[in-house]
Simulated assay, not measured.
Amino acid sequence: MAHAAIFGFSPEEALADTHFQINMLTANYDELEDRYESAKREIIELRSQLATARGDQEKLEAELSDLKQKSAPSVEFPEAAELLNQLKADRKKSTASLADVESILEILEKS
């Protein structure tokens, strides 16, 4: 029994075209699946690198904090009046006032 042509194709040609389309779709699916798996592996690697970087950052911040504490020695300054007296003893013509010395001490304590 003769089969009618489908859209200008014989049934054999239509079947061959359908098989071709299935093969193309399967190949595309396989390629997309490979890309997906590759992307998943890359994401896992990037997450690992991020975790390592965060750990390194925490260590560096802790080291920096330690260094700041160690490098900022606690200095006890004499009283402003005592410093002013020492200044006047060393430099007889100094015009510094007690307020000037107090301001200088405040600046030094903030540093």
Rank of each mutant, 00 (worst) to 15 (best):
residue 28 N to K: 15
residue 98 L to D: 08
residue 90 D to F: 01
residue 104 I to Q: 07
residue 22 I to F: 04
residue 34 D to F: 10
residue 107 I to Y: 12
residue 106 E to S: 12
residue 61 E to N: 13
residue 99 A to P: 02
residue 98 L to C: 05
residue 65 S to I: 00
residue 103 S to M: 10
residue 84 L to Q: 05
residue 4 A to H: 03
residue 6 I to C: 00
residue 90 D to Q: 02
residue 62 A to F: 06
residue 66 D to A: 15
residue 106 E to W: 01
residue 77 F to I: 03
residue 102 E to C: 03
residue 99 A to R: 14
residue 42 E to V: 00
residue 9 F to K: 14
residue 97 S to L: 03
residue 103 S to L: 09
residue 81 A to I: 00
residue 73 P to A: 08
residue 23 N to D: 13
residue 72 A to P: 01
residue 79 E to Y: 09
residue 74 S to Q: 14
residue 65 S to P: 00
residue 13 E to G: 02
residue 111 S to G: 06
residue 56 D to R: 14
residue 6 I to H: 02
residue 109 E to F: 00
residue 3 H to N: 10
residue 108 L to Y: 03
residue 88 K to T: 04
residue 99 A to C: 04
residue 57 Q to W: 02
residue 24 M to K: 15
residue 26 T to G: 13
residue 13 E to I: 03
residue 74 S to R: 13
residue 82 E to D: 14
residue 93 K to T: 03
residue 32 L to T: 09
residue 90 D to E: 04
residue 18 T to E: 11
residue 42 E to A: 08
residue 21 Q to N: 09
residue 84 L to N: 05
residue 59 K to V: 08
residue 64 L to H: 08
residue 82 E to F: 14
residue 58 E to V: 06
residue 109 E to K: 14
residue 81 A to F: 01
residue 107 I to A: 13
residue 81 A to D: 06
residue 1 M to P: 06
residue 105 L to Y: 01
residue 45 E to K: 11
residue 33 E to K: 15
residue 100 D to E: 05
residue 54 R to P: 06
residue 39 A to D: 07
residue 43 I to A: 14
residue 91 R to L: 02
residue 85 N to L: 06
residue 45 E to R: 11
residue 25 L to D: 15
residue 71 S to N: 15
residue 23 N to V: 08
residue 51 A to P: 07
residue 96 A to D: 01
residue 26 T to D: 12
residue 66 D to E: 11
residue 4 A to R: 01
residue 12 E to Q: 05
residue 32 L to N: 11
residue 75 V to H: 02
residue 52 T to D: 12
residue 69 Q to V: 12
residue 20 F to A: 10
residue 77 F to D: 02
residue 17 D to P: 00
residue 94 S to T: 05
residue 15 L to F: 08
residue 5 A to Q: 11
residue 100 D to H: 05
residue 65 S to H: 03
residue 1 M to T: 09
residue 106 E to K: 12
residue 89 A to E: 01
residue 20 F to N: 10
residue 1 M to A: 14
residue 2 A to G: 04
residue 60 L to Y: 08
residue 80 A to T: 06
residue 59 K to S: 07
residue 53 A to I: 05
residue 15 L to C: 09
residue 51 A to V: 12
residue 97 S to Q: 04
residue 45 E to I: 05
residue 62 A to P: 01
residue 106 E to Y: 03
residue 92 K to I: 03
residue 33 E to F: 09
residue 84 L to R: 07
residue 93 K to L: 07
residue 103 S to N: 09
residue 62 A to C: 04
residue 57 Q to S: 12
residue 9 F to W: 14
residue 78 P to F: 04
residue 79 E to W: 04
residue 81 A to Q: 09
residue 14 A to I: 05
residue 45 E to P: 00
residue 6 I to F: 04
residue 108 L to E: 08
residue 63 E to R: 06
residue 43 I to L: 15
residue 1 M to H: 12
residue 43 I to F: 07
residue 109 E to P: 00
residue 52 T to P: 00
residue 26 T to K: 15
residue 31 E to S: 15
residue 31 E to N: 13
residue 67 L to D: 02
residue 46 L to H: 09
residue 56 D to C: 10
residue 102 E to A: 06
residue 28 N to V: 10
residue 10 S to N: 08
